[in-house]
Amino acid sequence: MNWLRGGDADDDVFNEEGAYVPEHLPEPGAFLDGHEVLTGDDHLAVHAASRERFEEFGVYDATFGYNLAQLNRDTRHPDAGLRYAVDDAAPDVLRVEFTPTTAFCPQSGTLVTGIFRAWNAGESEYRLVSVRVAPMHQHSEATNEKLAGLEERYLETGEVAVEEGSPTASGADDRETGAREDGGSGAPSAPF
């Protein structure tokens, strides 16, 4: 059962760390169309930064119990994970598209919000990291509208907003990411 938590009990479950395996990545979706989709070493460099930020901010997939960046290496889900592109109109903007493992993934909203907050809360070479969930998700339209609102507030204020009454604002359990204030899930607490 260690593989459920992202452990290395079964090395066949995960691609080698630092390997670029395009057949185990989701196809870039509409949010990345017309932009410079990162591949090879460029993809790996940005993805390594994602992994570090997700570790710092507790962006964990509760189903698998691992840092969300690990999903790109999980061979059981070759059509799920993160893809990145540099915005053609604004090269200081990184676009991130998250494709969940299923169209009805209940964690998608929390995960993409966590991605947005983790990337925009600290220093970065990008002025903005814009995040969306892939259109295959059943609630993509509503989720992406919420993300656009977070992005708009961030650009206006320079602050990563935490909505009043949200689990991360109150310190209560964040049941969708599996993170708790006391870290009791085995995942880091979510300070975003």
Rank of each mutant, 00 (worst) to 15 (best):
L32G: 05
L25P: 01
S50T: 04
G29H: 11
A89K: 09
G171L: 01
R51H: 13
S189C: 07
P191H: 04
N72E: 06
M136G: 14
P135G: 10
Y20W: 12
L94F: 11
R83L: 02
N144C: 11
T110L: 01
R51V: 14
A134L: 12
E164T: 10
P188H: 12
T157S: 14
T113P: 01
L32V: 07
E181D: 11
L94R: 04
A169L: 03
G186W: 07
A148K: 11
N2D: 14
G122I: 02
S170G: 10
Y84W: 02
V21A: 05
R95D: 02
P100C: 10
E52T: 07
R83M: 09
T168W: 02
E123T: 08
S130R: 13
H77M: 12
H139P: 02
G18M: 05
F116G: 00
F64Y: 07
T99H: 11
A179V: 01
D61E: 12
T102H: 13
P100H: 11
S189H: 11
E97F: 04
S130F: 00
G58F: 03
R180E: 14
V133H: 08
E52A: 12
D41W: 11
V160T: 05
F116L: 00
G34D: 05
N15Q: 08
A121Y: 02
F104G: 13
E52P: 00
A179Q: 03
A49W: 03
D33E: 15
T75V: 15
Y60Q: 05
D92V: 04
Q70M: 13
V46N: 00
E56M: 12
T157M: 09
E176V: 02
Q107G: 04
L71G: 08
A89P: 04
S189F: 10
N72S: 13
L111N: 01
A62Y: 10
S140I: 08
E52G: 03
D41F: 06
F57L: 03
D174Q: 01
G34R: 11
L82K: 02
G18E: 04
R117N: 04
A19N: 07
T101R: 15
G40F: 08
D87W: 05
D33R: 15
D61M: 05
P91A: 15
H24V: 08
D41L: 09
T99F: 01
D42A: 13
A85L: 05
A69S: 15
Y154I: 06
L82N: 03
F192R: 04
L82R: 00
R95M: 09
T75H: 15
G65V: 06
A187V: 07
D10Q: 12
P167G: 07
A179I: 00
P191E: 08
E163R: 07
L111I: 14
R117C: 02
R51K: 15
L128S: 06
V93K: 11
F192A: 02
E36K: 14
P26C: 10
E163N: 08
G178F: 06
R127W: 12
D87L: 00
Q107T: 03
E159H: 09
T110G: 07
E181G: 06
P167Y: 03
G183F: 03
E164Q: 10
D12W: 09
S140M: 06
E36P: 01
H43N: 11
S108Y: 03
E56G: 06
F57C: 01
A90W: 13
